[in-house]
Structure formats: C-alpha cells, structure tokens
Nucleic acid binder design. Sequence first.
DNA 1: GCCGTTTTCGGCCCGACTGTTTTCAGTCG
Length: 580
Amino acid sequence: MISNSEVASHLAELARLATLEEGSSNAFRVRAYETAARTVELLDTPVADMSAKELAALRGVGPSTAAKIRELVDTGRMARLEELRVMFPAAFVELTRIPGVGPKTAVMLRDELHINDVEGLKAALDAQLLRGLPGMGAKTEENIRTAVERLGIGGKERRTPIQDALAVARDVVAALSAVPGVIRVEPMGSLRRFRETIGDIDVIVVSTGDPEDVMRRFVDLPVVREVVGYGARKSAVLSASGMQIDLRVMEPSQFGAAAIYFTGSKAHNIRLRQMAIERGWILNEYALAESEGGAVIASDTEERVYAALGLPWIPTEIREDTGEIEAALASELPDLVADKHLRGDLHVHTSLSGDGQESLEKMLAACAARGYAYVAITDHGEDLTINGATRQQLLAQRRRVAKLQDQYPDMTILQGAELNIGPDGSVDYDPEFLAGLDFGVASVHSSFTLDRTNQTARVIAAMRNPAVNVIGHLTGRRIGHRPGIDLDVDAVLSAAEETGCALEINGHLDRLDAPADVLRHARERDVVFSIDSDAHDTRELANVANAVRNARRGWVERKRVVNTWTAKQFVRWVEGTRGG
DNA sequence: GCCGTTTTCGGCCCGACTGTTTTCAGTCG
C-alpha cells in the first residue's frame, strides 16, 4: 500500500513541474498542488484507504487532485505527472536550480536556443548566445555564468545542517550587534523555526541609526565571500562555506510585523495575510494596516499583530501551516514543552564512557546546578567495544553514586547505562545484571543498513526488554552525514504505547532524534518522551534546549515528557516500566 | 486547482532587488 508520504512526494513533484508549465511558482495551480501535498504528508489516516469523495473534503484537495490521488493508489501511476515528466525531463529541470534562472528563463532558453540541460547552457554561455534574447543583456549572461560555475556550492536547493547554520548566524549576530545604533539583531527564517536543515540564514537588524552603516558593515564581515545583492535596507551575501545570508534593517516600530514576515513559513504567512484581507487590512513586513489609507493597526510586537488578527501568539517552531492556525483559532494550541519545565536529564555520560570527558562528580554537580530533581547516569554498555563500561566498572560506579547521593538530598540519582541494541534486538549484559541497574536507555549504534522489517523488530524487542526505559536517538541519523535507520514508525509507536517505554528526543544538534515529523505523528498516540542532553561533558548538558525546540516542532506537549514530571511521578513511571 | 456568513464564478499574499527597460518582467524569499 502506498504511503501518505509517497503520495505527498508525487504531489510535490507535480507542483515543481507545473511551475515550469505555468511559468511561475506562484501560479494558483502550483500552489494548489503544494497545499495538497502538505495536507497529505501530515494526515494520520492513510489516503490509500480513502474514497475520492473523502479525499476531496480535505483542505486544499478538490475533485481534480482527489482523482489523481486515487489514480496513483489504484494504478501506481499518475498520468498527468508522467506527461509533465516527458515535457520537462530531469536534466532540463536541473536548469532551474541555478540561482537567477526561473521557469520563464528556462523555458525561453529551450524554446529559443534549444538548451535542454546544464551542459547545453554552458555551451551557449561560451558562445555568448544569451545576450541576444529578449530581456537579456551581457550582465544577465555573466550573472548566469557565475551562478553555473558555483552550482553545487550555492544552488537554490542546497540546505545546510542547522548545526553549521547556527554557528555562522551566531558570528553574524555578534558582529552586527556592535554597530552603533543597532538595538537588536535576530536570526529569523527556518533557523528560528528550528528546522533540521537551513536554506538561507535570514537576519533582522533593528536600528535607530543609518541603515547603510549596517549594510556596509555586513558586506565587509570576514565570513562574506561574495555580495549577491546590495540595497539600502536589504542585502544578501554568500558565506565562505556557500551559505546565503539575507539581511534586513528595520525600524524598532516594525519589529513585530518584520519578525512574523521573516520567520515564515511562507505558507503560514499566506494564511495570516488572507486573514488580514478578510478584515479589509493588509499585512506586510512593515505592519498590519488598513488597506484604505494605510493606518497602522499593529506592528511593533508579534503578539500585537497576532492579537489584531484574533489569534494568540503562535510558537515559532510550529509556524508551518500544518494546523497551527486552526488550533489557534479554536484556542487549542498545544501546551508545548519548554526549557523551564525540565526537572531532570535521563541520558548523561561520564568519563566511564570512552568518549565521556568529565568525572561523575563534575557531571552530578553540573546537573544539580541546573536545579534538576533527578538525573540518570547512563554510560555506554560493554557491547560498544571501544567506549563501553565493564560490569566491574558499573558496579564500582554504583557504589560511588550511593555515596554521592548523600550530597544531593534534592536530586535523585539513578545509575543506569546506555545499552546497545544489537541487530537481533538484544542488549548488553545479562538480565540479572541489568535488573541491578536503576535505569536503561537503549540505542542503535550499529547495523544501520538492515531492512525495515529487521530494524523495526530490533527496536521493538528492545522496548519490550524490562531493563529498558527509553529508546535513545531513535533513528540513529546524523543530520547532513548519515540517514536514519529504516523504521516502520507506526509499529514503533504502537510498541511505545503498549510498553510505556519513552522515546528520547536527543539534544545533539546533528541528531535531533527522534525527528520532529515522527514526534508529530505520535501526537495522536499515547506515547511518552524523554528530553535528553546525551551530554559527554558538562557544557553539553545545555543540549536539552535543542531537544526542547525539536520537541516543540513535533507539537510535543509538556504532559507527554516524563522528565517534566515531579520526582514522585517520574519514579513511579520508572518502576512501572522496569520489569515490564 | 481550490474555494465560498460577499458561495458555483471570480477571485486567489506581498514587496525588494536586478537588469532591462523608460514602466516592467522575472526572480526570490
């Protein structure tokens, strides 16, 4: 049976190719396909089980798209998509990845110069054929030549892991904060929404001084390799690593409208602007204002702009037009977990792990300093041969923990381990030894290439193990480096409901695992989570803030997170899950 | 292609920048 995400990716491709046919990504047909793709992607009911009539009742899906979905489900094909694939082969579509080449230009290049791929474009550039086309001159030709040469480093679809983008953004923010007159510098866009990968870094500078000072300072930053746009209030540059950084300078009174606008997502903003129009208003990056006369209704804070539209402030992580507007209108926004709710950390390493950097004593002191009511010390199990702790080492640690517990009357210390889930679902040590531990996190650290059936079976077997309270970094992915293991997410969520085993939300920026889309799908299920740092030194304990933001993206509510519970509730859950 | 307390047709989000044009089209976000 075809999955919803496969159907959604067909619809997304339909939108991409329709862009070429329509000549614009803003064409209504294109937007309709995009909306339909988003709706299907997020739906919990399999579309394969739905009638055309039921499909057409979904938001953004009408009779035409419903028929296309049914056709795909029934025949495995979508005739319209196949026609478009013939009209626009992949090598031709590749042309639109070049910055500056949109659908109109690509089609003109083919119609006028018979260019069908990037190689053909290069030849035409060498022959200086582009400058003879309508609306094109030598300058445009040169711009396209430059863009082709750096395809792969600055292409439109290039995305950077959030870990790398955050580092670049931090430097830009620090440098621009020092410019005279600047009172505020904030990263916006997908960085503020905390997506796993970032396209461009968007930054707003609020300044009471001369905006041109900010712009000059911006394009002179050491990180800047090339200036790709330069205006009085808006500029764009490419960083040394090829990331695009967009900068806007705004007045203090515009900050709220600007923050909403530049945070996005685009789909979220479109919904807000539609709501503004219904009221006879207009919403842009400067203000929410009356269409007639332009009297400003709200602009200085996000809260005021949302409130004027009849909405509560919407958390940045869920601004994707995937149901948050409807929830806000119905006063049913989720009670998202926040940093201040955390009462403990359930995945902490010490120097007993080969890759742990600091002593048990230091890690506990740092946890206590964070105000935790409980903590689980979870060094690697022995099956991780280069990093794991032996039984003797764990027993010795257990005695040390017992002594240290006296120093922390307000913090319950659980001594456990991060167990390794073997390819067959077994974990380290033997059941008798494991029963002597207080807590168990079980994680996949090997055999990443098993098929879905086997991966799913091993994870579920670990969940059913009475020594396991939490499944660590569910998919094992490393963002930008390694894909996650192939899992039947539905089956895993069912096992989590059945066993009470928590799914970890890991705070390492290259993990953010379980991924937000998995968390979102767990929303309708009776699943609990743990928000963990997976710290290997005291500094990394702060990683929980990353996990919190990823949890919020996945609509995870406070009540679902076991380490927001009181010590009493938490210990009851631990005891309930241990021993099955 | 979708949608409707302006409902079955006529709308559909908004603006900066660039390069090419003397008023605008294309691209981008």
